[in-house]
């Protein structure tokens, strides 16, 4: 194993059950339930998942949820807007700390 990330780990995700079947089964049942139509549509949930995948910068999640978003009927424009939401949140999360910086800078400065 000469890399930390392997493409085939995604289709092999289910093998996590080898070290603990009960928790894996519970997790995957929960996971699949989360993405069913509910108060939000399956398509809306797939777009949220896509945005979160980019916030987490998880290549497996990006791979899986890009396919899922397409299958659930989103197009590239809608998916790109979802990624911008993640980007805006990540950027905003950095930028809003600038107020802390400014307050402290002002306190320390004459």
């Amino acid at each position: 194993m000469d890399h930390y990330y392997h493409r085939n780990h995604l289709p092999r995700f289910g093998e996590i059950g080898e070290g603990g079947k009960e928790l894996a089964d519970a997790f995957f049942a929960y996971y699949n339930k989360v993405f069913e139509d509910g108060a939000l549509s399956a398509r809306e949930k797939a777009l949220i998942a896509l945005a979160v995948a980019h916030a987490l910068q998880c290549p497996y999640c990006i791979d899986a949820h890009t396919t899922s978003a397409l299958e659930h009927g989103s197009d590239l424009e809608q998916m790109t807007e979802a990624v911008h939401v993640a980007c805006a949140l990540r950027g905003g999360a950095s930028l809003v700390h600038g107020i802390q910086m400014a307050d402290q800078a002002k306190r320390l400065s004459m």
Binding site: D37, S41, A42, R43, T67, L70, E71, H72, G73
Partner: peptide
């Protein structure tokens, strides 16, 4: 890729 859920 495959088709999504028809009813949804």
């Amino acid at each position: 890729y495959l088709s999504g859920r028809q009813s949804s």
